[in-house]
Design a protein around this nucleic acid. Structure first.
Length: 104
RNA sequence: UGAGUCGGCUGGACGGUCGCCGCGCGCGUUUAUGCGUCUUGCGGAGGAAAGUCCGGGCUCCAUAGGACAGGGUGCCAGGUAACACCUGGGGGGCGUGAGCCUACGGAAAGUGCCACAGAAAAUAUACCGCCGUGGCCUUCCAGUUUGGUCGUUCGCGGUCGAUUGUGUGAGCUGCGGUAAGGGUGAAAUGGUGCGGUAAGAGCGCACCGCGCCGGCUAACGCCGGCGGCACGGUAAACCCCACCUGGAGCAAGACCAAAUAGGGAAAUAUGUUGCAUUGCGACAAGGCGUUGUCCGCGUCUAUUUCCGGGUAGGUCGCUACAGGCAUAUGGCGACAUAUGUCGCAGAUGAAUGACCGUCGCUCGGCGUAGCCGAGAACAGAACCCGGCUUACCGGCCGACUCACACC
RNA sequence: CGGGGUGUAGCUCAGUCUGGUAGAGCACUGCCUUCGGGAGGCAGGGGUCGUAGGUUCAAAUCCUGUCUCCCCGA
């Protein structure tokens, strides 16, 4: 379910397709498994405080968990932009739902 | 009632649905470690988890011991594993007070610095002033006068000069005395009073301050004796003195270990032949380098097995403790001791969450014992503890101070 | 986890070690020069020295706390 190793991240960044919105950048790359996998790349530049980084990660994981059963087997890496730090959870969830639709 | 000081506690509560991480039980699988998972039980961020400013545990490296350098600490005593922390006491400063702050050793070991102003800035000196004395010039006073002039009662008088002075005042100047006073500065060589003197001065005396010696004292300080005073500030300037101090950090460190490349060791290879085929034994043999030849040595190919280092990756370290709570005892206190009781996160591209409902808190509005809307801080463990510092919406409790009013 | 640096005028930087006057270039304002502009010349204005304390007679400078930004090693 999760991307864990540096090599997996490198492969996704090298070959994946990118989608953007105001709060997130998503990289998607097909994998050879039965299910999609999620990788989180929330940088210190986007959110300086660890509280904010943890909050964004939780929102992304929760949204991925709800949408994963309907998705194709892809390796997906989510990056956050500085805007994400200032927005409430509901706003971030809507943005993510839009992105999942675009990926399909 | 108002204003304030100090200390402590707390950091929303309950329920439902869907999830995440760890541990345990069960089940399946596996020789086992382990892996998977329907179900089920338990636990799952902080007072600062933060900053990383100190101290310690732990691990590895270094190390006979000592000294120097470097770094740190700096009133005294105690607490502690240790500390730059804490407690108690003292000195200094602030506040009416409760209280608060305090880098608080040494300036006669030495070196450096003290702008501007000021006479002089650390060596003592003397600008103005004050006093004594000599000279020059001059005022007033006193005297002398045979001078000029006016008046006259002819005795003399007034006035202007000249001249004399152990008389007197002012000015200029030389020499000497003085450090009281003035002025400059952040800082000027003890303070006040009386005596004293030509004027002054610890020159003398009283009190205060200061220094030295001795005794008591933890520091602070107290007591006694002696000394006219010898000592500007700065050590968060260099420095001196006393005490402390090896370095690195859990990415420490230990273990398992794929693929690829490379390192080391051994065996085998081709031909002929013997024994009873697989197999074992014997003999012979290649290229290159080492000047020609021979011997010897080195090197060149492939396969298999083994060994060691070790990358990716994984496991351990990893949470039980200088541990929390309660009671008792000792201590002014920090704290210590004893007994009982509790088990309290362990992730690693990194869990601790999302949504809904009810109640509580704060603010605003409607309007009133309710309804509606909004808000709820600082902030997220990464080996673990003890402190310090910094950030923070509010709430609760206790002790104390000041002002006003009433009894 | 460990280590280093930076903050001064609107901008880019000196000055800090060794305490006493805050300075340079560009930019800005006025005047001269030119038919006008630019360039040039002359004159001028402008700075809580990141912040809070302390040491000192005196602090941008020395000391301590704190904040921002940047960089390096494992």
């Amino acid at each position: 379910m999760r991307l864990l190793k540096p090599t997996e991240f490198k492969r996704a960044f090298a070959k994946g397709k990118r989608l953007r919105c105001s709060a997130f950048t998503v990289v998607a790359n097909p994998n050879e498994l039965e299910h999609p996998r999620l990788g989180l790349a929330i940088s210190r530049k986007a959110a300086a405080r660890s509280v904010d980084r943890n909050r964004i990660k939780r929102v992304v994981r929760e949204s991925f968990r709800r949408n994963a059963p309907t998705m194709n087997p892809l390796d997906i890496v989510v990056q956050a932009t500085p805007l994400a730090r200032t927005q409430p959870n509901a706003f971030l969830s809507r943005k993510l739902d839009d992105l999942w639709l675009k990926i399909k």
